[in-house]
Nucleic acid binder design. Structure first.
Lengths: 142, 142
DNA sequence: TAGTATTTGATACTAGTTACTATTAAGGAG
DNA sequence: CTCCTTAATAGTAACTAGTATCAAATACTA
């Protein structure tokens, strides 16, 4: 009996709260949990979030000039961050398309990033396993 | 006399140390400075690094699962991080090239990221001003 | 129900920020 | 060149964010 994930109430609460929020910081998750369950410690929260990340139940995301955030969208995708209002948007890599110079050509971010990963392998002999792409700027609302 | 940047010895020391290191963390910068100048406080170090970032003298970079780092390469470029040895490599966006399906086509990361930024504008009405692209994986040495 | 390894919560630590007082660089007047 | 003024900067201390350690509690299995 080694390394089995146990089902604890704390773990279930943390997961549920995370699922109810959009790109929350740990502090936001903590605020919600404290109201109902003040006995749950921050160690437990951080620890469980990391564990869920390892299990691929959630993603931990790193945006410039921000604290760590969690994302319950586990499909591969990238992020936009509005530097004016702070909102974080998901970019779905396979839905976005852009014609290149040749009007019959279209490219998704997904295929583009695959091309880049191959180029990196060729040029730097570096095997890419994870891509963190963040675009900062101003959103349509601002 | 408002908002003039003053030339302080602390500022010069911090800048010189930063220039001598590759992608240093603040802790690495601090370690070097403390040996010669133990009186310089961490607030001063953090404050000056941020100020130099505002002046575009250095870049602050954010890598997944890492503390903040500074980069004295101020030309636009992206990063590779080896998850095995921890080494950080710069990708020069204009030097890397990769043929697309059409063998007469080549694309730099720079042009690709410009295409993506335009697509983001069209699709999400979001004006990209900064791109933070980090590729994690295993380097040739590991 | 008992045994045991995992998980929790507490505590103390490292990393980074903020607020505030004391110091100092730069510019002007004599 | 020296003194004065003043706003920017330095250092201190106290705070938020995140990590590590470890005894106590608890989930799982037999």
């Amino acid at each position: 009996m080694i390394n089995i994930q146990r089902k604890t109430i704390q773990r279930q609460i943390i997961f549920d709260v995370l699922r109810s929020l959009e790109h929350p910081t740990v502090s936001q998750i903590n605020d919600v949990i404290q109201k109902e369950h003040p006995a749950i410690s921050k160690s437990t929260i951080y620890r469980n979030l990391r564990q869920m990340e390892d299990e691929k139940l959630v993603c931990r995301i790193w945006l410039p000039n921000d604290t760590e955030r969690y994302d319950n969208n586990t499909t591969p995708h990238y992020h936009l961050k509005c530097t004016s209002c702070g909102t974080i948007y998901d970019i779905e890599p396979d839905t976005i398309e852009q014609k290149t110079k040749n009007p019959t050509n279209t490219a998704t971010i997904s295929t583009i990033s695959t091309i880049v990963a191959k180029a990196i392998k060729k040029r730097y002999n570096f095997a890419v396993t994870k891509k963190d792409l963040v675009f900062s700027g101003t959103c349509g609302e601002c």
